[in-house]
């Protein structure tokens, strides 16, 4: 197990290094100078230059890359060009919204997808299955921002049960936070749940046609017992893979939903930073997300080993 872990760790470090190079190169070649953006159309060239000097933009690419990376290694994400505060503080603020939102949406996704997927697989070809297949098709096809706007009109404007958006902050209490995140989480969860339910269903169907299932049935186990004891656990691997991908997506990919509900999340931070050419924020946040994705994948690998003893023994 140990050599395997070391090997994985090594490849993890290499992929992070390569990612850092790619991110830096991509963002540095994006046209647009942060200083002239901040100073606008009336600024004089010497003023722009003074600001470039202040922001450290007049140094070479290599110098900037080295200082960025050495900062990252020490846990220093740099200082935002526009906000002029440490990127780590800004990101920490945004994570207070993005992490709970992603977890909330993921929980809803699983709560919806598991029973629905199992039901559809168990009653394959029945009216239930047909309904599930149709509904999930719709769930994937309907853009989630449109669904979000619809929910705002019904639940916020007409019924007044929720506010139309915004985040009250954790000081306001857990109830207020849950209330603020419910509509966005539902909007995020529906398409994800549709995807996951379909994966769950097809994975279960694949497993159910395996020889060992037939053997188990021949041994005298009921359909239900086979489903719970043998099929479900073996069908989990593709499902876990998808859940891992969905969490990474929900963490940073909620930009549109964050905009619809004006939530101060990570996606909106990156979006704003790109338009304002706050390059250091973009670089550091993207790097952090790469790290998160790599980490989630690693955890998913561990989870594989947990559901499938063969993987444990092989390594």
């Amino acid at each position: 197990m140990l050599p395997y872990l070391i090997k994985r760790l090594g490849s993890l470090i290499v992929s992070l290094f390569v990612a850092s190079l790619v991110i830096f190169a991509c963002i540095e070649i994006v046209p647009g100078d942060p200083a002239s953006f901040m100073l606008g159309v009336n600024a004089q060239p010497d003023t722009v230059n003074a600001l470039r000097e202040e922001l450290g933009l007049n140094t070479s690419h290599t110098q900037r890359y080295v200082s960025w990376i050495s900062g990252l290694l020490k846990g220093d994400l740099g200082t935002s060009y526009t906000y002029r505060s440490p990127v780590s503080d800004i990101v920490a603020d945004r994570l207070q919204v993005s992490v709970p939102l992603a977890l909330y949406a993921l929980t809803l996704t699983i709560l919806i997808a598991f029973p629905v997927g199992v039901l559809a697989a168990a009653w394959r070809g029945s009216a239930v299955d047909l309904f599930v297949m149709g509904a999930t098709q719709l769930g994937i096809a309907v853009p989630n921002f449109w669904f979000a706007i619809l929910m705002v009109i019904v639940f916020a404007i007409n019924l007044g049960w929720f506010s139309a958006g915004g985040f009250p902050g954790w000081d306001a209490g857990i109830l207020a936070v849950i209330k603020a995140l419910t509509l966005p989480a539902v909007a995020l969860a529906l398409p994800q749940a549709s995807i996951l339910a379909r994966v769950m269903r097809s994975s279960l169907l694949d497993t159910l046609s395996e020889d060992y299932i037939r053997s188990a049935r021949a041994k005298g186990l009921s359909r239900r017992q086979v489903m719970w004891r043998h099929a479900l656990r073996n069908a989990m691997i593709p499902v876990l893979t998808i859940i891992g991908l969905q969490f990474s997506f929900l963490l940073a990919g909620a930009i549109i939903i964050e905009n619809v509900f004006f939530l101060p999340g990570l996606g909106r931070l990156v979006f704003q930073a790109i338009t304002q050419r706050d390059l250091i924020v973009v670089e550091s946040v993207v790097m952090l997300l790469v790290f998160a994705v790599v980490l989630v994948n690693f955890l998913v690998d561990l989870a594989y080993a947990w559901v499938d003893p063969r993987l444990r023994e092989r390594s």
Partner: peptide, 18 residues
């Protein structure tokens, strides 16, 4: 001052009394 960039969100926030 609350920052709402999306026009549809601005509409909803105003209508909902936020």
């Amino acid at each position: 001052f609350k920052f709402i960039s999306e026009p549809t969100a601005a509409f909803a926030a105003m209508m909902a009394g936020d």
